[in-house]
Design a protein around this nucleic acid. Structure first.
Lengths: 329, 329
DNA sequence: ATGTGTTTGGAAAACGATTTCCAAGCACAT
DNA sequence: ATGTGCTTGGAAATCGTTTTCCAAACACAT
């Protein structure tokens, strides 16, 4: 591989000069700049990022930490969108992403996790799906050793940003739309994972709506499980005229139950995944743009890594009605 | 961060000795080995992989090249399994994986792609979904600059391995099972992407079966598109008593069409994705274990990178009947 | 000619490991 | 004591960049 040294020799300048040209530093005349660039082009020189990282102590390497759940097509869809958005944006910003699953670090302590990331030159991490239970991750965040962007969880310190839709408002909006369209009075709300941040926020949204509209609200914990949502719907939908779910996957479980029971109840979900289109009945849902969310997360991480302070970024959401005709390709 | 130098000083030995201990080289006594290990432990030393890579000119870094198609939940499922398998196995083998999408390199020429990978220290690549049309990728493979594992495509040279199920046999098996169960005589076969290697193989499988069993075979090109499969089923299923599809996604499109037309035809697919369970009707399909396939691909790449020659690895497949009850969690 | 200030380019150290090569130390036979 | 061969540990070069610091070169005014 042709190195910076070869370029320097060929162009008749010093190594440092070539480096300056490559990194667009000042203090190099237009003449030399052109000469160097010409040689770079001619020799097909490509900088060795490994060497650059070692020298500059910067890697441009970040980790995307995801919760893997191969059992459900829903989480695959969401994860792929996160991965895709992150990788594309990272390439644009000359960074690179390594994907890590929580399962890979779940039996490590904080030091081990820290070492794992640091030895690979990772300085920035995007964390998705954080719950209050994730002790190690919280310690990791608190340690201050990394710049961190959390998706859908509250900001904790100066070197941490938070990105996500307004879950309170989104849950409020979609439920309001659904009950208005169907004139519902009694809502069965199937909630998410007990310790999740988003669970609490979405719950707050539905409570706010029910108080405002004087609706009867029955809350049951579905733990983001399709099966559990199905069971809860079987048991509790008789006494309610609407099923609001904290996720699309649970909405699907609920709808499947209603189809089996052969009764009609409007169902709404949360996420906006394609899978919703396959159930055979239309449902309202909140569409989150996961690609855009993770693009923003990367941008935010880039900001943090260049020394700026953390902030809270609220992403837009839209209300949609999912049907097969719209999703088939 | 504590470096090898710190360890050396603290242990009262030379840097090279520490390195030898770390890499399990011979020529270091048990006494020194223990002393060094004790200091490593005490200081919490973690080797800097960036420096190690630069020095040894080896990175343990491989690329997983995927075709992204966020429009379909099917490809997300498959891609996530590839990613998950690759990452987990890579961690086990002390390698790391960067995920790359073909969309990121599609407007580059061979040199640019080569540079893109080499500058990042990538020496091994796993390629999935190769077609005869992918000129750049073929040049990349031919260039011999990388060790390559192709999934589902024929082996081309000594430094390339191939991993995948026996598509000819799998297609033969699943179609045979389906026609036997339903006593079919006239098969509509909806084929895959025209230039894909797997398309040709699966086609060979169904042809073989139809010749053997003296069945009437109508082949139409569905290009792995759900929509196209739906349309083809609308047009051609009247004259046939069975729809065999080269992918699950197309099988779903076909089944949706049959449901809409309110006629019954057995449909079988290929892949074994969870999405199959959501359509409301059971279908036969070939289950490929994508996680295992990509784990094997990583192992294979590891073999190639340590100098061994390429080979063809045939993975097992199973025949399954997908139903909602089995996939709900 | 001299002084001053500003560009511009180069020499060299550093980053943190790996790896080669060599010398010291030791055991053992002569 | 000397020679031989083997084990063990260290010095130093190397990988390909970045970055700091300094000197040369130049322009311009005095």
């Amino acid at each position: 591989m042709v190195s910076i040294k070869d370029v320097a020799r060929e162009a008749g300048v010093a190594i440092s000069t070539v480096s300056k040209v490559l990194n667009n530093y000042p203090n190099v005349s237009e003449t030399t700049r052109q000469k160097v660039n010409e040689v770079v082009e001619r020799l097909g020189f490509v900088p060795n990022t490994v060497a650059a990282s070692l020298s500059s102590k910067k890697t441009g390497r970040v980790a995307l930490l995801l919760k893997l759940n191969l059992d459900t097509s829903a989480s695959d869809e969401i994860n792929m969108q996160y991965i895709s958005g992150a990788i594309h944006k990272a390439k644009e910003l000359q960074m690179d992403v390594i994907t890590v699953f929580t399962s890979m670090i779940e039996d490590m302590n904080v030091d081990e996790v820290t070492n794992y990331f640091e030895s690979q030159g990772i300085r920035g991490i995007i964390i998705y799906g954080l719950t209050t239970r994730d002790k190690v991750l919280h310690k990791l965040i608190d340690s201050g050793r990394f710049k961190i962007v959390v998706i859908d969880a509250p900001m904790v310190n100066e070197s941490t940003s938070c990105v996500g839709v307004d879950h309170v408002k989104a849950q409020y909006d979609i439920a309001k739309k659904t009950i208005t369209e169907n004139k519902c009075k009694k809502i069965l709300y199937i909630s998410g994972e007990e310790n999740g941040y988003v669970t609490a926020q979405r719950l707050e949204g539905i409570k706010k709506l029910c108080e405002e509209k004087k609706l009867k609200l029955t809350v049951r914990n579905g733990g983001f499980s399709e099966l559990r949502a199905r069971e809860l719907t079987m048991r509790f939908s008789k006494n309610n005229d609407c099923v609001v779910c904290a996720s699309d996957l649970m909405a699907i479980g609920a709808m499947k139950a209603l189809i089996d029971m052969d009764i009609f109840r409007p169902v709404c979900g949360f996420d906006g995944i394609i899978l919703m289109g396959y159930v055979g009945k239309q449902m309202n849902t909140v569409k989150q743009d996961f690609v855009q969310i993770s693009e923003t997360a990367i941008e935010e991480l880039n900001r943090l890594l260049s020394g700026e302070t953390g902030r809270n970024v609220v992403m837009p959401h839209t209300l949609v009605r999912m049907k097969y005709e719209d999703i088939i390709r």
